[in-house]
């Protein structure tokens, strides 16, 4: 219902399950002029209604040294919704949460591998999960303070190393202030237990008024939870 055009600001540096994906590649960023040009191209070509909307993605945009200028370029170009695809940790730092809101960002997609600190360290090599939760809480608090409507969506990749913690991850995301959680089903055991965990993650969202949708191998989700299945992952992140 809402189309976001991805704008690649760089690559690498993403914290994911090392056992499944290996170590993160070194982070690189594109030149701000190239990105601004791309934003202008996308806006001029966009026929999306409502829109135009863009998603700054690739490497974490908060690491880009010219992020304020990029957001300003998007605002000047007439972008209606600016989304940032972030690991979340940067939202805790300095004035990033309120600053990004002031600049015009209204959508936050926060990638989370696991909420639990010990599990997070074990699978990603660092406390990325708790940092992401703290980032979500920071931007939620800033938005409430500024009375600015925002949308926070957490993206969780479920793999065989994190699936058992999925319901508790959704609970922690809800407590932190996420509005929705998208679970991408990766390399998980094809078992009744996996199905039960996916269903429990959806139900955990429901009782916390947080929408959970599931992409990937949705056949693992029980038929009772069919509404949580998203067949086409139109918003797939790079």
């Amino acid at each position: 219902m809402l189309e976001f055009n991805p704008i690649i600001v760089g690559g690498g540096g993403r914290s994911r399950c090392r056992a499944c994906h290996g170590s993160a590649e070194p982070v690189t960023y594109r030149a701000p002029g190239d990105i601004a040009t791309r934003i202008a191209e996308v806006v001029s070509a966009s026929t999306a209604v409502p829109g135009p909307n863009i998603l700054l993605t690739g490497a974490d945009p908060f690491g880009h040294p010219e992020l304020p200028a990029l957001v300003e370029a998007a605002v000047s170009a007439g972008v209606e919704r600016i989304a940032i695809d972030t690991d979340g940790a940067a939202l805790r730092a300095g004035d990033n949460a309120a600053g990004s809101l002031h600049a015009g960002v209204r959508h936050y997609i926060v990638r989370v591998t696991a909420a639990d600190e010990a599990l997070s360290v074990r699978v990603t090599g660092g406390p990325s999960g708790p940092a992401a939760l703290a980032g979500i809480a920071a931007v939620r608090a800033a938005a409430q303070r500024l009375q600015t409507p925002i949308a926070i969506e957490a993206r969780v990749e479920a793999c065989r190393h994190t699936i058992a913690a999925l319901p508790s991850t959704v609970a922690a995301l809800a407590e932190a202030g996420a509005d929705a959680v998208r679970i991408t089903v990766g390399d998980v055991p094809r078992s009744a237990e996996t199905s039960a965990l996916l269903a429990a993650a959806c139900d955990t969202g429901m009782v916390n008024a947080v929408w959970v949708d599931v992409v990937g191998d949705t056949a693992l989700l029980p038929a009772t939870h069919a509404l949580h299945m998203t067949e086409e992952d139109a918003d797939a992140l790079p």
Binding site: M1, L2, P50, V75, V79, E80, R81, I82, G104, R106, H107, P149, I150, A151, D179
Partner: peptide, 8 residues
């Protein structure tokens, strides 16, 4: 609705 409302 939140996604729609969150805009400039």
């Amino acid at each position: 609705q939140k996604r729609y409302r969150a805009r400039l």
